[in-house]
């Protein structure tokens, strides 16, 4: 069955969506990501959607679900590379991507994930002296 590749980059998982995704492929990605986060102990998920022509309400909701599910599994999610026309259309459509962090590109998304993970470690493992 078709599958979207998930790459492990250090403590993070990287997903690059390059094809026009049908709904079953989107649902499969959601399940695969949950399994990979658990199996690898990844602390963050970066989803690059620069190859996506459109994001409709179904795909938008999937990003929200992935972010919520990753958070429960102790990982942050950042969606990067949204095209300007896609952002304009999403707002008009009424999809707000609540709970989903975004960044302009992969590099900025990685920075955001690293900062989020570092900030958390500082809070949790702060020096006792």
């Amino acid at each position: 069955m078709e599958q979207t590749p998930i790459l492990k980059v250090g403590p993070f998982l990287l997903v690059t969506i390059q094809v026009d995704m049908h709904d079953r492929l989107v649902q499969r990605l959601q399940t695969d990501l949950a399994e990979r986060i658990t199996a690898t102990g990844a602390r963050g998920v970066l989803i690059d959607i620069s190859g996506l022509d459109i994001v409709d309400s179904f795909i938008g909701r999937m990003f929200g679900d992935i972010a919520a599910q990753a958070r429960i599994l102790d990982a942050e999610t950042v969606v990067v590379g949204m095209r300007p026309a896609v952002a304009i259309t999403l707002v008009e459509l009424g999809v707000r991507l609540q709970g989903v962090r975004t960044a302009l590109n992969v590099e900025k998304g990685m920075d955001l994930l690293q900062a989020a993970v570092a900030g958390e470690e500082e809070r949790v493992g702060g020096s006792p002296d």
């Binding site: 022509d53 459109i54 409709d56 095209r83 300007p84 026309a85 896609v86 304009i88 259309t89 459509l93």
Partner: peptide, 16 residues
């Protein structure tokens, strides 16, 4: 690009 994206997104919503 914006007109095209809006049309295709509307198509996706209604087709679904």
């Amino acid at each position: 690009p914006v007109d095209l994206t809006k049309l295709v997104t509307a198509a996706s919503e209604i087709a679904r």
